[in-house]
Write a protein that binds this DNA or RNA. Structure first.
Length: 797
DNA sequence: CAGTGAGCGAGCTTCCGCTTGACTT
């Protein structure tokens, strides 16, 4: 048995550190927090100075049991959790739960996982910082109080099972506000003038700095260009520099992986987790841009070897954000000399991105020469300008350039042809194109993370899960949306004649963007009305200031909580007692056909439209109902759009003596015939699809279904081999089973297959299934216990 | 899955942050 037990948070870290410390040390992981507030509503004893009641979580029982055993046997226990608020609390919980003797317990911290850093940490142990722990307790208790008092108000006033919290409610609010901003946006158009010149056989593009608000003004300008001559009036050459971006934090990694690789934030984190476990990169949940001395040195050597001295520019980056807690390094390759790794395609691509970003951060600035040419027009005072860029020295651009969220396309970093002042230019043509102003873009998962980070809301470990939560609650959907079409005017000037054309463009199409749902809007409005304080974008920042005071020992944690809770709880009770139910009902007007009112509202199954009043004593006629489509909102749907919803289901015609009906379901437009459903593809319109086309689609589907079936077993018809989206699989009744790797679906016998279904013995899947069953059983028991407790409590009263 | 929207009521839902597995039609 080892004399020393070192406890860190992550198992991958434990493995590395164990190698540095030698045989007298056992390094174990506690897998993050081992204890949390108890599950129910009684975890905080409010009357007793907010005394928290902690419990070891079910999935940590085994870990804790092992750590207790090892710590009893060890001479010294080293608590080496991260050096931030949460890490300090983890160490404190460990010392409490393991019953550690202060004389044999040492708290150590390090910021980089290298042998010298670890050894230095071991030589400089300290005690647990109780102030920092208290700051964490305050954070934890505040979040529980906010979440568990606000959510029940929503259950009562809006709909059951909803949730609210310090982080998620603000995330939804950002999306709701952005959506309204876009809906209220008044797009204006202006005419942008561009000219093309021929300079010694090369084309040069120039632009008029001014835009014209009306077509008439643009036309007047072009008229004046007739018979004009064009000269280079002025040339201005300016040097410029571009600096590399800092190495990745969790948030910037999520943004770049989204922009450059199209990964969602969850995918980015799970791929990064794999890279970390393989030892390819440093820890992926961090808000620090700091690189260790050894890393900077290692990067420098790599740059000198690969690119030469001119490209090397070692530097330290510092984190601007106040909320940063600097427990880790930035995300970087563990070894810069490893430029490529083995792994899946996704792992390779993400690693490549991380490697390039980190290397580039240690490289020289790029040197650029910008040229601004002014072109005079002989018939008027206006001038065209042409800009060009020449890269004098590429520096870090040799490996990496950061992308932006800005979709604007007028970044023209073209080179200009050689020019002289006074030179006469040959005009090719001029066009005046109508351009429309654009509202702020909708959030992607990654750009929402960026915004939350700017506001200091949420932490690296919670960005991705938070985005998941607001979608799971139905407040927000991530979707693609088709754009709309609009006409724009182009005036074209060539050979002294002007022509006019009206062109058509698509605009506002969205890919993987976040949209609020009706319920997301209702909840946001309700919370903003009654809990302004919590919904304020500065709320987190202001409580963070107080947590910092607690950490510095200038404020007592339960005093701070009490000061917050008294007015907050009063608002909760008042709202719960007095506030009206919040609904999103809206009357759209009168249906011209039936002359009955049309309303839209949120019901049990989501938003729907209704024609006619509910039946009562005087009115026995039932109203008609239709669900709203996923891209329609109660707030913005028009009367016409609502009436259109009632045109479905629509009978298209007869086929094989049975009716074909078209309608829109949960998964989009479909045709139903003989109770078989066929999806209508995007290229067809559900309102106008013909019976010929419908029959074509039905036949296509029949063919596909016939190919889907590989084999039905005569021994048991429930057992089928099928072709699916991911290749062949096995189906037994309603359940599906994966085929073992390397098996050929065509040669599998009944015995082979029934074995997979009935006795999935020995392999890992069986064990996994058993575990799941066990977990469910445990949950059931726990639920029963809660029920019993509650019953008992009621009896007492 | 392919639509639904009466009304009652028991029992339940819910937070944020720290970790990794185990799960994938």
């Amino acid at each position: 048995m080892s004399k020393n037990l070192v406890i860190v948070e992550s198992p991958a870290k434990a493995k590395t550190i164990e190698k540095f410390l030698g045989e007298n040390y056992t390094v174990k992981s506690c897998y993050g927090h081992i204890r949390d507030l108890a599950k129910g509503d009684d975890a905080i004893d409010i009357k007793n100075d907010f005394l928290p009641h902690y419990e070891v979580s079910d999935d940590k029982k085994a870990v804790v049991a092992e750590l207790i055993k090892l710590s009893k046997a060890a001479e010294t226990v080293w608590l080496a959790s991260d050096e931030d608020r949460e890490g300090e609390a983890i160490s404190w919980h460990l010392s409490e739960v393991l019953g550690l003797d202060i004389k044999k317990t040492k708290r150590i911290v390090f910021h980089e996982i290298t042998k010298p850093a670890i050894l230095k940490a071991v030589e400089n142990p300290r005690l647990i910082d109780k102030n920092l722990v208290d700051a964490q307790q305050a954070r934890r208790v505040l979040d529980r109080l906010v979440g568990f008092e606000l959510s029940p108000v929503l259950w009562k006033k809006v709909r059951p099972s909803l949730s609210a919290g310090r982080v998620q409610s603000v995330a939804v609010k950002l999306i709701v506000e952005r959506e309204r901003e876009i809906n209220h946006f008044n797009s204006s158009s202006a005419f942008k003038i561009t000219a093309k010149f021929n300079v010694g056989g090369k084309q040069m593009d120039a632009e008029l700095p001014k835009r014209f608000d009306t077509e008439a003004e643009a036309m007047a300008f072009l008229e004046k260009c007739k018979n004009a001559t064009f000269n280079i009036k002025n040339l201005e050459v300016k040097p410029a520099e571009k600096s590399p971006a800092a190495p990745f934090t969790t948030s910037t990694l999520q943004q770049e992986a989204s922009r450059k690789l199209g990964f969602g934030v969850t995918a980015t984190m799970s791929v990064a987790q794999k890279l970390y476990e393989h030892g390819f990169i440093t820890y992926m949940r961090t808000d620090s841009v700091n690189l260790s001395e050894t890393a900077i040195q290692n990067a420098k050597e790599n740059i000198l070897n690969n690119y030469g001295e001119r490209y090397s520019s070692p530097k330290k980056y510092t984190t601007k954000s106040d909320s940063a807690q600097e427990a880790h390094e930035a995300i970087r390759p563990t070894y810069f000399e490893k430029q490529e790794i083995d792994g899946t395609a996704q792992e390779k691509r993400l690693y490549d991105l991380i490697w390039k970003r980190a290397i580039a951060s240690q490289m020289s600035k790029a040197q650029i020469e910008r040229t601004l040419a002014t072109v005079s027009i002989s018939t008027m005072a206006e001038t065209f300008t042409a800009t060009g860029e020449v890269l004098k020295f590429d520096g870090f651009l040799k490996v990496y350039l950061e992308s932006t969220d800005d979709e604007s396309d007028d970044e023209n970093s073209k080179m200009l042809p050689p020019l002289k002042v006074g030179e006469v230019l040959n005009l090719i043509n001029i066009d005046a194109t109508e351009r429309f102003s654009r509202p702020a873009p909708r959030y992607t998962e990654a750009s929402l993370v960026k915004k939350l980070e700017e506001l200091g809301i949420g932490r690296p470990s919670t960005y991705a899960p938070t985005i998941g939560t607001v979608q799971k609650r139905g407040y927000v959907v991530k979707e693609d949306r088709e754009g709309k079409e609009r006409n724009f005017t182009v005036l074209f000037f060539e050979n002294n004649t002007i022509s006019r054309a009206v062109k058509n463009e698509k605009y506002g199409s969205e890919k993987s963007k976040l949209f609020p749902s009706d319920i997301g809007m209702v909840v946001t409005d309700f919370l903003a009305k009654h809990f302004e304080n919590i919904m304020d974008y500065g709320f987190t920042a202001s409580v963070e200031e107080e947590f910092d005071k607690i950490a510095r020992g200038q404020l007592v944690w339960n005093k701070m909580i009490s000061k917050f809770y008294t007015p907050f709880h009063k608002e909760v009770t008042d709202t719960s007692a007095n506030a009206e139910r919040q609904n999103a009902e809206r009357s759209l007007g009168i249906d011209p056909e039936s002359k009955k009112p049309v309303i839209v509202k949120v019901g049990k199954y989501g938003p729907y439209a209704q024609i006619g009043e509910n039946a009562d004593d005087t009115n026995t006629e039932k109203p008609r109902y239709a669900s709203l489509r996923s891209n329609q909102l109660i707030e913005t749907i028009t009367l016409e759009e609502a009436i259109d919803l009632f045109k479905l289901p629509r009978v298209i015609g007869l086929y094989e003596e049975k009716e074909m009906k078209a309608a829109i379901g949960r998964f989009g437009p479909y045709i139903v015939h003989n109770s078989v459903f066929t999806t209508i593809p995007k290229t067809d319109d559900v309102f106008s699809i013909t019976s010929e086309r419908a029959i074509e689609l039905i036949e296509e589907k029949r063919l596909k279904d016939a190919n889907k079936l590989i084999k039905v077993f005569v021994e048991d018809e429930n057992l089928k081999l099928l072709n699916g989206r991911w290749g062949p699989y096995l189906a037994y009744g309603k359940d599906n089973y994966k085929l073992p790797k390397g098996s050929d679906a065509n040669t599998l016998t009944f015995d082979d297959c029934i074995k997979l279904v009935k006795i999935p013995s020995s392999d890992s899947k069986a064990a996994a299934n058993k575990k799941v069953a066990k977990k469910v059983a445990v949950k059931k028991v726990a639920a029963k216990k809660v029920a019993l407790k509650k019953a008992a409590a009621k009896k007492k009263k």
